[in-house]
């Protein structure tokens, strides 16, 4: 077979500078992606390292810490009736239960109101109303939590909790929970609405064609079809509520980073996040090495909880994708 006239080598090599530039771009964006991964790994790693160090410190406290401790130091410090790192009371269950109470209160507010908003926006609102309301909802999601925390402290606590339950100034887990709930509504509403709007319109038509009212269609067709997305919304919102710090820090009423164990929402208390913020910002006057270490221990517990919730949420979201 005859070969066409031989061409000079390099005919097809193109512009070498451009190829080099392409490689550089590749490296830069890969580095950007890698950075966030490395940072995450670093955070988790240091968290874990310091948490382990804290536990080890409990087993073998340094001389200084030991001198300050009243009743000696050991693993028993992890189980008492209060969280008071100043006095080496590292009762994590106080904070866990505090977080639980705040989260339950928050979700009791955010789940029905968020879901209701989502149903309204997705099923009832006209296009014109939705175009106005949806952005407002998204702006609400952007309110700094410290603002809402202040609102919870100065308004919700005295006016809602104080008045209704006859508390003095109303600072309590309940007030904090209500504040966190308000903060979580937009997130809950937004994800739920996305889930409901992804239900095919043809199903709504089928239901209407069979003589169903909008209410029936929503309850019997749209919500069941969107259930995985709604569960995911609930979990993401829960995760957000557990992680919320500022509102609780301001409104839950724990002072000097000391909180007594309680399951009563009307009492003052603290959560994992608020205790960490309190500890790290040094509002607690004396911070021993061991007390500071407890921050990482609590942080790690918190990380494990939210990670678990996010993994579960991810599963549900995936399942939504499979259906449609």
């Amino acid at each position: 077979m005859a070969v066409a006239t031989p061409q000079p080598a390099g005919l097809l090599s193109g512009n070498s500078r451009r190829r080099a530039r392409e490689r550089v771009v590749h490296i830069i964006v890969a580095a950007a992606a890698l950075t966030s991964i490395l940072v995450s790994i670093g955070i988790v790693g240091s968290l874990l390292y310091r948490a382990v160090e804290f536990v080890a410190g409990l087993a073998d406290p340094g001389a200084v810490d030991l001198a300050e401790a009243r009743n000696g130091i050991g693993f028993s410090n992890l189980w008492s009736d209060k969280w008071a790192p100043r006095f080496f009371d590292f009762d994590v269950k106080t904070l866990l239960v505090g977080s639980l109470v705040v989260t339950v209160v928050a979700m009791a507010v955010a789940a029905p109101i968020g879901l209701g908003s989502a149903i309204y926006l997705s099923e009832y609102a006209s296009d014109r109303v939705r175009k106005v309301v949806k952005p407002i909802l998204e702006i609400l999601a952007g309110i700094p939590s410290v603002v809402l925390g202040f609102f919870a402290l100065r308004w919700i606590a005295p006016n809602v909790v104080g008045n209704v339950f006859d508390g003095a100034d109303g600072q309590s887990l309940l007030a904090a929970g209500l504040g966190v709930g308000l903060l979580t509504i937009p997130l809950m509403a937004s994800i739920s609405e996305d889930a409901m709007r992804s239900v095919p319109r043809a199903l709504r038509m089928a239901s209407a064609g069979l003589g169903a009212r909008k209410r029936t269609t929503t309850v019997s067709v749209v919500l069941p079809a969107a259930v995985s997305g709604l569960v995911a919304a609930g979990i993401v919102a829960t995760s957000r509520a557990i992680g919320e710090t500022m509102v609780v820090f301001l409104a839950a009423g724990a002072s000097g980073n000391t909180a007594l164990f309680t399951v009563n929402p009307l009492e003052r208390g603290s959560t994992m996040t608020a205790a960490m913020a309190s500890q790290a910002s040094g509002t607690d006057g004396t911070i021993s090495e061991l007390g500071f270490g407890s921050l990482f221990f609590v942080g790690f517990v918190l990380f494990v909880i939210t990670l678990t919730l996010n993994l579960i949420a991810d599963r549900f979201v995936r399942r939504v994708r499979e259906v449609y």
């Binding site: 199903l203 069941p224 079809a225």
Partner: peptide, 13 residues
Amino acid sequence: IGMVFQKPNPFPK
């Protein structure tokens, strides 16, 4: 007055 649509649209039930 019932209706059958262009694309089959059974409920996911």
